[in-house]
Structures are given as structure tokens and as C-alpha cells.
Write a protein that binds this DNA or RNA. Structure first.
Lengths: 363, 363
DNA sequence: TATGATATTGTGTGCGTACACACAAAAATT
DNA sequence: AATTTTTGTGTGTACGCACACAATATCATA
């Protein structure tokens, strides 16, 4: 393994010069720089990350901005992945704080602005679920030259500070849901899509899911599909009432695509109505949905790998700071189809994205 | 972050003594050892891996034993994952060589014995597809105290040197295939299982897949299922002949579970026979199967995450050597259901298990 | 030619750990 | 009592790199 010292010898200069070339610190004569770069090339030099992070005196601190978790699920999978990645990076000079905000209230995200930009952070990892406010934050990043990575939701923008997006491909998840339901029903049966969220228009991912769903069905001869929003999405009785109405109107309905993790409520409802012949596709491996998998045979969950989103999001910043490598491409994580038969493996993976990250001998 | 030096100060000893305690090198008075351990506890000391691997003069070398790849797919996904993991570990003192063997011929695996045990390797990562010979190798590991990790196939054994298994859960994949097919057919339709491999009995994973498949169907009222082995699995004409025969015998057959990656041959056959109404479930994201996804609508692939198997297998050895942490539990990777709609994400992931492992600035 | 300014290059130190070695004190042996 | 041996402990160096600083070369100007 070639070291800086070897490069220096090869190029006939000192390690200091090589260092300046590697880090573009300037003050190097052009022909010398060329010689050094050739030496680097010829010897196939790759910096030793262990040594590099050891030699760096200062940590890189990043602010992680996430929506608050609901009480009953305090450690969201997203957070888990982030914490694990941070844990594995801490020996290599990357540290992060999680700043959470209430995404149901306006203005809560922007309240974090001061903390984020008070000088203690070098980068931002953000789940921009609240489009407007998140955009403001990212603009501020641009103007102050602070790199940022988006996870979970994506707001298209092209600034120099952007380090891209790591997250799900909602459009494809819509297609996937359509394919599954299409596969599971018989000729002549009808399909439907159900939004269970308050503010659908302002949630990019819901809009995209619907678009993907429509796209698939249009290309596969389903022209009479039902698209609906539940007005009340928490109260089981009201849900039952609405669903019952829907089923009476649409006797041929045999498959429903629920665009959020609330699908377990529909499982419960349909079981009460004795209509568990209806195939369901919903989202996310959460407690209630896992339970639903046990009770409801025709249920598939699409898992968006939340913990990997967090994990790779952090890793992108790791690459940026520790490897001098800035990835900006979109990284779409796999969409997993989860059933009772494979849910255990997925749970396991969510617990431990990387065994290398596990607590070590002195934990 | 507490360092060894801090522990030493706290315990009133020198760093050398702390080092001896941490690594159980002996020559430490009992009461001193206790004091040091307390200090470690109180300060929450965690070794700095960067410094550790930098200070270690010697690399840990591991032998990776894999079946040869076929010509047209030289870099198996398995190998990819392993190479990536090795690449990311090389700065941290873990190196490995891949030793491959022809698993179609008897005795080929054992020919590697001398190379493995010639003293250049400290550990073994093995895909024990050939049960008998692999067992012999692992026994040798036990008697020489060399740790080993199994990937891909699992041979149950309990020796002190075993670092467990990282791989698929074949039984569950059989259940999963059954569930999918069951979901996709109508009442009264028939299902079947097709082995496309020469030596089914000696392939644990095929036996397990069949068992899982049977299990699911038995519990869901399918009592007339067809189980079959193709005698010729390479020649398309002969396959067509056999399949044609099968379909004539079983007019109600509407779904087939293919236990190997050769499912694309069945797709082709069924298309020629104009019978693409038959739902198919097969294994693995290989070129031919990806193509098949485009041509054959009712096809699902089960992905066993081969590259993650390799990745985590190596990481286990990383933990063992660099973190003094030995995991021995079985790690079953997620079984992904892959369709045309989500295959791109999976391909992407196979290309880059971890962006942290990507080639860096001087590649 | 001397002087200073600037551009370029070299040197030294420390990051946290592992490990070889030196050394002192205590114990065992003569 | 003198010696060897054992046991316990501390010290110093190196790993590869980043960075501060020292040193030297180059050049324009007086």
C-alpha cells in the first residue's frame, strides 16, 4: 500500500508538497504538481482513512433534522439508521445531533434555524417533509455554503451545496402496489386507491404514489379504478362507515392500495365487515401492521427501508468529509414487498443494518 | 471521548497497564486490574478503531472459499459484496483472498486445503455448498482453532471456532413463493414446484425450499400440488417437451415455483407455448431473469441478497478481529420480492451495498 | 549587490493505540 | 545472603496522515 511518503519519494519532493497537492492547498509549482499527481496515479495511492481521521484534530459536526416521532414509536426506524451510522462514524471524525420538530404545526421547522446555523454544524441532513419551510432552510444552506442531504422526501433543487437525495421512489412504489393487486385479483374485479392522510396535496410522496399507481393500471387495462380520500383517518367507527359505503357502491372492488402506514386500520375494518377477501397493499413495517399481517391473509406491505435511508444519508456526509467525495445522485432504496412469510427477516435487518455497527466490547 | 491515557490517569497506572488489561495480556495485579476495569466502566471507554487499526502492524488475512462462477457471470453478486466489504476494511487491517473451486466436481474443494492452512490465513469465510468436503474443512478449522463464517449455505455445527451463518432462509423463501402464487391464482387452480438442478438431494437449500413451499400450501388448503424435477435443465427443446407434457397432464396448473435461478428458461418456454397465464416465482436477480421480467408479466423473483451475504460475512470477521467481538448467531437476510417495478432499485443496491465502500478520490 | 517580498518546499509534532522493551520489586532458589 | 526467576509496571516508538511552522528558492526593486 503506497503511502504519502512513497509518493513523495517517487516524485522527488517532500510529504508536505504531496499533502498540498492532495488537498489542493495551493503553493505548488505547476510542474511539481504534475509530477506528484503522476506518482499518485502510478502507485495507485489511496489515503488511509484510519490515519486520516486520526490525524484530523477536529470532528465534523452535522445537524440531523427530522420530524418528531409519535409517542408510541419514539425511535422511528429512520432515527435508528441514523444513530447507527453516526455510531460507526464517530471514530472517524463525524458527529451529529438530532434536532426534531413537530411537522404537524406550521413554523416549527423554522424555529430550528438558529440552532442549525449557530456555527456548531458543518452540514445538514434533513427530511424535508414540510416543503415550504424546508426549502427556506436549504436556501440558507446554499447561501452559507453548507452541504446538505435530503432523506425520505425529495425537493428537487440544484444548488452547489446539495448532496442529493437518499430515499424511496414513491412513483415506483405506486406501480408496484398496482402490480401486486392486479396480480391478485380476477378478471373483471375492480381496484381502488385510498389516501389516509390529512394534507395529500402537500405531500409529494402521496401524489407520486398515486401517479405511479395510475400509470400501471392505465397500461394494463384497468380503466375503472376508484380513487378516494378518507376524511377521517383515526376514528375506527367513522372509517368503517366510509368503507362500508364504498363497498356498497362498488361491489366488484377486490383490491385496495393504501398510500400510508394506516393500512392496519383498513384490515381491522374489513375483518369486522367480513370482507377479508379484499386484497390490500399498504406501507411500512410498523407494529400495528405486523400484527395485521398475522390477522389478514391478503395483505402486503411495501417497506421503504427507512433505516437504510438514514444510514446512507449519514454515509454520504461521511464520504463528503472523510473521503473528499461528493455524491449528488439520487439514491433510491429498494422497495421491499413484505408479507407474514418474510417480515421477520426485515425486522431483523431494521434492528441491525450493519453488524459492524453493533455496540462493541466495552458497551 | 475517553482515551487509554485517561483511563490510566483515572486508575493511577500507566497506559501500558491499561493496555494489558484491555487485551488480557496478563501480568497485572488483581487489584490493579479491578481498578482499571472500573475506570473503563466509569469513563465509558470505547477503543478508537481508527487508532487501533493504525497501530496494529499486521493485517488479518482471511481465506474466502467460493464456488467458481460460470463464465458468463464471472463476478457473482456474492463476490461483489465480499470484495466491497474487503475494500472498505483494508484500511483497518483486514485482507482477504478469494479461493474458488469447481463445485461440480468431487474433491475440488479439498484441493484448497493446503493453501488455506499454509499459515497465511487467520480465518475462513466459506460457502459450504458441497456438504461433505466443506465439513472436513470446517473440522480442520476447529482442530487448528481457526475461526470461520458460513455464508450462502448452512451446515449446522457447534464448535468453538464457528462464527455462525450469514445467508438466506430457504424454508421461508419456499413459504413466500407459495404465498405469492396462492395470492395470484383463482379458486380451484393448481400449483406446482419445479426443481431445476441436477443433484437436488445434496443441496440443502433446495430441500428446504420445497419443505417451506409444502408447509404453506398444506396450511392453506392446497392438497393437490405437483412436485417435479426436470431431468434436462439446459436444453430448451427438452425443457419445452417436458413442460408441454406437464401442462397436458395438469390442465388446471396456473402457478409454478421454480427453486433456482433457471426460471427464465421456463418463461421462455411458456411464452413459446402461449401459456403466459401461468404465474411464476423463481430466484435471483441475474441478467436472464431481469430480461424475463420484461417479457413475462406474471413473474416474481425472490432475491436472496447475495451481495449482502458476502458483505456481512466479511463484516463478521471484521468484528471478530478489530472489535474483539464474536457474533455466532444466524443472520438471515431479507428475502426480497422483485418485479419489473422494483428491480432497478435492487440492481442499484447490488452495485453499491454501501456508498461508504465506493471507490474514493484516487481510484 | 543587497534587500525585501513572495512563491514554493521541507520538517516536526501529535492524533490513540499496540507492542517491544526496560526496569523495579518481590519471590523463589541457591 | 547472594543469586536467579518471576511478576508487575512504566517508557518509547511506530502506524499514516494533517497541519502548523520553518526554511529555502525566486524574483523584482532599489
Amino acid at each position: 500500500m503506497a503511502r504519502i511518503k512513497d509518493i513523495a519519494a517517487r516524485a522527488g519532493v517532500s510529504v508536505g508538497t504531496v499533502d498540498r497537492v492532495i488537498h489542493s492547498r495551493g503553493s505548488v509549482a505547476k510542474e511539481v504538481e504534475k509530477k506528484v499527481k503522476e506518482a499518485i496515479e502510478e502507485l495507485g495511492y489511496k489515503p488511509n482513512l484510519a490515519a486520516r481521521s486520526l490525524a484530523k484534530r477536529t470532528d465534523h459536526r452535522i445537524a440531523v433534522v427530522l420530524p418528531q416521532h409519535t409517542k408510541d414509536e419514539f425511535w422511528g426506524n429512520q432515527t435508528q439508521g441514523i444513530l447507527r451510522a453516526l455510531d460507526s462514524c464517530k471514530n472517524f471524525g463525524l458527529r451529529g445531533d438530532i434536532l426534531s420538530f413537530n411537522d404537524q404545526k406550521k413554523g416549527e421547522l423554522l424555529k430550528l434555524t438558529d440552532s442549525i446555523f449557530d456555527g456548531s454544524y458543518e452540514a445538514l441532513l434533513i427530511a424535508p417533509t414540510v416543503t415550504g419551510e424546508a426549502t427556506e432552510l436549504m436556501d440558507r444552506c446554499e447561501s452559507s455554503g453548507m452541504p446538505y442531504v435530503q432523506i425520505n422526501s425529495f425537493i428537487e433543487r440544484d444548488g452547489d451545496s446539495s448532496l442529493g437525495y437518499v430515499g424511496q421512489d414513491s412513483y415506483r412504489s405506486g406501480q408496484l402496489g398496482a402490480k401486486l393487486l392486479d396480480f391478485g385479483i380476477s378478471k373483471g374485479d375492480q381496484l381502488g386507491l385510498l389516501h389516509m392522510e390529512y394534507d395529500v396535496e402537500n405531500s409529494n410522496h402521496l401524489v407520486d404514489k398515486e401517479a405511479g399507481f395510475r400509470n400501471y393500471l392505465q397500461h394494463h387495462g384497468h380503466h375503472y379504478t376508484i380513487y378516494k380520500r378518507l376524511s377521517d383517518i383515526d376514528d375506527l367507527k367513522k372509517i368503517r362507515y366510509q368503507i362500508n359505503e364504498l363497498l356498497e357502491e362498488q361491489p366488484k372492488l377486490k383490491g385496495l392500495f393504501i398510500t400510508t402506514s394506516r393500512v392496519h386500520l383498513i384490515c381491522e375494518t374489513l375483518r369486522m365487515l367480513n370482507r377479508d377477501d379484499i386484497a390490500l397493499v399498504g406501507f411500512d413495517i410498523v407494529k400495528e401492521n405486523i400484527r395485521a399481517l398475522h390477522n389478514y391473509k391478503k395483505l402486503f406491505l411495501i417497506n421503504q427501508n427507512p433505516s437504510l435511508q438514514g444510514f446512507y444519508g449519514v454515509m454520504r456526509l461521511f464520504d463528503h468529509f472523510l473521503k473528499n467525495k461528493s455524491v449528488t445522485e439520487t439514491m433510491h432504496l429498494p422497495l421491499d414487498i413484505v408479507t407474514l412469510e418474510n417480515v421477520s427477516n426485515h425486522q431483523y435487518m431494521q434492528d441491525r443494518d450493519n453488524i459492524a455497527l453493533d455496540k462493541n466490547e466495552y458497551d
